[in-house]
Design a protein around this nucleic acid. Structure first.
Lengths: 255, 255
DNA sequence: CAGTGGTCTAGACCACCGC
DNA sequence: CGGTGGTCTAGACCACTGG
């Protein structure tokens, strides 16, 4: 080894750049990203101030700011003027409702209540293993979940969770679970959901699905197939949500 | 007037900032935005280089770069390394297809062909006048349009266009129109479509709609209600697109 | 090769927040 | 008030693009 490590936190050396084809701020962003992924900087808390980071990495303030801007646009950090730079907390949940407009007696947009209809452990099929990045024959936890507003069933969900990771959910009492899963993932399993991809499509309800949603067999439904990712950008949840197609409403921005 | 105008293009003066509560780069961005809206800088062409802008506005390079970054994130400008900074051309069109997966004989994603079914001039109703920012009783052009792939009808559209602006389309031969409307708006009417909002929902086809799409009455359909905006961010097109719900497929990013 | 945007520096001062 | 991020400067040098 030629380069000598400095006393700084994750030192890239001072007068040389161990990066091959990367910009310095790109390298810094990668370095700081890994400090988040490895748990040195934890979600919800502040990271060291810019000035300190600049000094410890041996770069100018502006360079650190560029690196931080990258992580902000990645959604990993959040800056608050006069206060500090914070690691973003995970997704709050209730994000499924943005696809639907359900009538409520009151005006308040309360999060729907949630009931687990079934929970079983089984082997992942090929598609699931592929999407979750699991080896063939890995086991998963499969949940069926009904979400209701004012005791009116409105969303039917099927979730697939990789099992070593979500083991804590395989045994606990499902009637005591939170209405929002993502904060619970974080609390119980240490899994932070950071982003998701929702694929929207259309179908008709099977007899069983219709019964659970209190609709008729063959009723049109909107289907949301979600892949949710953790901080390290690995898919850790597959979810299929069904709801009345006539309650579906979503606005997409173009360009 | 105390401040003396410099020789620069849209001079903000040198040592003072005529802005009330705004940052300097925010003011610069607004100034440059108006140079685009007023047609001094035209879509598709390069604006003056940063160094020249910095000198003519009497600010540092970094400040100009911040202002440019704002306009880039607004989608008004596009930067190309080693080449220049360009005013973005309008939306290309064919963007409706991103909501649908239509089977084609070949694999190629060609733009669907387009046929105008009807064209009439009438008074805008309240909703239309409101959305388009028109006075009550203004007139609009209403078009019905069928889009087909491989001679197979797939999308049925109804468009509402404000009339003083799109007068050139009210008389011309519709059989000679382009398949893509937005480039034609720009060429024929000087209207640049810059962004759009698409509201998605589901419904069932009326008898007339079904006939035009070669489907059955009551067949489930996806509805895309679009509001399209020009560079000045004024709504200049309302469009409702209907297509087979079973061909609907769209992916949304969460956070 | 000349001209463009991209990176980086080492400062200064300002605006906001919480105590 | 002290500490944070936000704005701004006036340079230097690098990397890409095109003729």
């Amino acid at each position: 080894m030629i380069s000598q490590q400095k006393t700084s936190a994750a030192s890239p050396g001072r007068s040389q750049q161990p990066e091959p084809g990367q910009s310095r701020y790109g390298w810094l962003a990668a370095a700081m990203r890994s400090r988040i992924l490895q748990g040195e900087w934890v979600p919800g808390e502040a990271i060291p101030p810019e000035a300190l980071l600049a000094k410890s990495y041996g770069v100018a303030l502006g360079t650190i700011r560029q690196a931080l801007a990258l992580l902000v646009s990645d959604g990993l950090l959040e800056r608050r003027h006069g206060t500090g730079t914070f690691v973003k907390a995970g997704l709050g949940g209730a994000s499924m409702l943005r696809f639907f407009r359900f009538r409520q007696s009151g005006e308040l947009q309360t999060s729907p209540s949630s009931r687990i209809l079934s929970r079983k452990r089984r082997l992942a099929n090929l598609d699931e293993a592929d999407a979750l990045g699991l080896p063939a024959g890995a086991s998963v936890l499969v949940l069926e979940r009904l979400r209701s507003i004012d005791k009116q069933p409105c969303l039917l969900e099927r979730l697939v969770l990789p099992l070593p990771l979500f083991e804590a959910l395989a045994e606990s009492d499902t009637t005591a679970w939170d209405d929002l899963l993502y904060p619970m993932y974080q609390r119980v399993c240490g899994v932070v959901i950071h982003r998701a991809e929702d694929q929207l499509s259309f179908d008709q309800l099977t007899q069983q699905q219709a019964r659970r949603l209190a609709l008729e067999t063959g009723h049109p439904c909107a289907r949301v197939q979600r892949r949710a990712f953790d901080l390290a950008n690995r898919c850790v949840e597959l979810r299929t949500t069904l709801g009345d197609a006539f309650a579906f409403e979503y606005t997409a921005q173009v360009r």
